[in-house]
Each structure stands twice: as structure tokens, then as C-alpha cells.
Design a protein around this nucleic acid. Sequence first.
DNA 1: TCATGCGGGGTTA
DNA 2: TAACCCCGCATGA
Length: 483
Amino acid sequence: MSKAAEQFDAADCVCSVGMKLTWDINDPKLPQDLKQFDAFQEWTDGYVRYIYSGEDKNAQRHLSGWAMRNTNNHNCQILKKSCLGVVVCARNCTLQDGGKLQLRPAICDKARQKQQKKLCPSCNSALELIPCRGHSGYPVTNFWRVDGKSIFFQAKGVHDHPRPESKSETEARRSAVKRRMSSPHFSQKRRLVEPEMGRYHDIPFPNLHQLSCMEGPDRFNIIEPNFPNFQSQPYTTFQNTEPYKFMYESMGEAPTTLQKPANPRLYMTRPHYEFPVSGCLGSSSYTTLYKDPASPPSEAESNKMGGGLTGVSHSPPTISHERNYDPKMAGWKPILGKAPYSERGDYGPLPANGNHHYYNSEYPCRYTGPAPTTPTALQTIITTTTKVSYQPCPKPSVVKYGENVYDVKGLPNCSALLEETSPTSYSDLKIPEDSSVIKSVHQDALPAKMERAENFDSYRYGGYAPNSYPDRVAHPFRYDGEY
DNA sequence: TCATGCGGGGTTA
DNA sequence: TAACCCCGCATGA
């Protein structure tokens, strides 16, 4: 096997162990005695399956970057979790660094309700929970099952919202806040600024540091400055910590690098969804919604977006549940006139016909991430385009490895991998014929999600040349990687 | 205080 | 009946 092929094999996002094999979390018999396991995936998305080692701590804890809460499926064997979505600024304001507030929803219901009463650290408006409806109008679900020495993971649905903070980020932030709160330095500052607290609302453009220092513990608790998880900086939340450094420093916390690069994200000129070519592209192959880095928001746009640190208005915080933001503003556009939601229970499952609150015909997804404004955003561009089709998985034209995409002609395809790694002890295991992997993906994905493509000629995979939207459409398969 | 897992129970197709 | 979801409770960090 060539070096390239070895790397290809090693890439868990290309042909994960879980996706090489055909199994379902509900199968009475799952693959056994696996010699190879998937590396833990923090940011799974799409209809994917992984098989982790039973000794994998993250898998044991059923961790996920997404905020997943336990959902009862009345099956003790299988742990089911559903995605809570993401907490954002109700005004969709832009943070100082151009990012958006994307907090991790608290898992605990009560904590989440409290969380939603807090205010945006940037513009002081309310926070809003965007529920996940990536699975037929229901939250994306993750299934965990321990079987033998393996931990089986299966995800259903494609997250239709930005990533929240990862758990580690949230924990780090909380501990940083605690440290900050208990530090003598903070107490001293607090004493100094407390007499000024009454003037808070007169401060034209409070930044996080000011808020943190001026508002005391309670306020701190309310604000909990977010470490933005920029869609514009996919999968590198902390790769470039400089923009957020002040936040950490204001809390006595050095920038962390807690979030390991998980899934590469792809830039889009227009937000749209991709389905993972499971087994071939794996969970890393989807994208949420990224605007083209080449088209950052104009000054006017930034201001229109609700201010943020550079343009906070003094009008009282307003929560518009009827908002109908212009998509061009990287905003939100509910299709239905109905208030989008407030919390789980305020909305019912959406019909699968795509009347998603945040969908519209032009933007298949309800969330349009902020246009990247930092140069670093350009560093994580992935130049791939893979068109979704029912082509067999074993012979993908393009696979993604890391942040690059490779034409795998000449490389071992999934079939070869299967042949090499198929367990013998799992007699019931079905080896994909015409890519059961893909089949399984679409069996799951299509019924509910076809509507997303209604006005978006097709689901496309992969990234593109960052500055060339026509390219992205015209060349769905392209070799853009380089060894 | 909150994350996590379990389990009862309601709703819908 | 199955497959969803919501909710409350217990537990542990």
C-alpha cells in the first residue's frame, strides 16, 4: 500500500471502522472482535456510525461536542441522546471579532431555562435557544451501545444549527469564571467598579471585559462571555485564540486549546447543507453553514446585524420571535409566521416538508453563519466538492482526508478496505455490495431531508475553492489535495 | 449546581 | 405497537 493509501486508510473520516461495516444500532448482533476502532469523533454530524474501543474514555462518557441530552428510548441496551441545539444572541449580533455568540445549551432543563434568561455578552440582548431539527424536524439523535469490547455509536440527522461550544470549552470557561471570581484581583476590581455599576446601561459599547469587571459576580454569571465558535472558523475554534484572548485574559484565563480539531468544515458562498458520504467521507464531510470568506460583511451589514461591540444600540434588548432577518445579513428568516420557539415544548415536530422556521427557499438552512472576518478563516478552507448521489461508496471519486480532498482513483477504495478489514467473527455482517453504507445514509437521510434540496438543486458535498463559487458548482469532483 | 442516566408516561402514525 | 418526545428523579462530580 502506498503511503498515500496508508494515510487514506488511517483517515477516520474517510472510511471509518464503523462505516466500513453494515450494522445498525438496533441490530441484535453487532460486529465483534474488531481489531480496529475509530478515533473518537467529537463533532459527529450526519448519518454516521462509529465503533469505538470500549476503553475510549470519551466514548465511555458518551461525549459529544454538540449539546446532547438523554432521551429515553425505553431500551436499556441503547442510550439515546438528542441534540439541544445552540444558544445564540436573539439579535444575532456580531461579536467584536466578527463571530457570533454560540453558547452550549445547558443539558439540565432548569439550567437551560436559567441560561436563557441571561443576556448576550456583546449586545446585552436576550439569548435564544435554537433547537436542533436536523432529523425529520426532530433533534439529531445519537445512539450509544456497548457491546463486547466495543462502543457503537450511531448518529441520525444533520445538525441544522451552528456548533455550540464544546463541552470542554464550556467547562473551561466555567472554571475560568470561578477562578476569576475567587481571585483577589477580581475582588479588588469589583470593589472599584461597583459604584459604577448603575451606569452600565449608559455605556455606549461595553465590551466583555468591561462587563465582566463592572457587573460583579451576578453579572458575570449572567453573561458568561462566550468563546465564539465561529462558523467562519470551522473546526478551529481555538486554533486561533487571539481574537478571544481578551475574553480569557479578562477572566484570568489563558487561551485554551481544548478543542482538538475535530471535523473539518467547509466554506460555502451560500449556506447549505451537505450530507456526509458516510463511509467514504465520514462525519467530517458535512458542513454547517459558512459564508464565503471572500465576502465578508460590509460595515453596513455589520451594523445592521444588531451592533455587537462595535455598534450596540441603546435601545432596550428586544427579542424578535417574529424576526424575518434578511439572509444577506447572515441572519435568520423564519418561514412560518409563528414564533419560532422558546424552548422545547413550545414547538412541535415539524413536518418533513421543510417548513422549517429558519429555512427559506433560497437558504436551505435556517442559520447563516457570519461572514468570516479574520484572516485565519482562510486557513481552514477545504476545497472539495462532492455531489450527493447514489453512486456506490466503494468507489468514491473523491475522498477527503484532513482538510484536503483526494481523487482516489488509484487508491484503495472502500471495497478494498473492506476486504482488508472485514471481521471474520461477525458472520451476520453484511458487506456493502453497492455501498450499503451510502444506502443506509440515504435511507435515513432522504425521506426527511429531501425538502432541503427542493430549491437547492442538489446536496453538495465538500468545500470549494474559497473564492470561486462557480467552481464549486461546476466541478463537483475535483482533486485539490496534494501530497 | 449541573451533567448524566434511568424510567414513567404522553403523543402520533 | 413502535417510535418518537417530555419530564421527573437519583446520582455523582
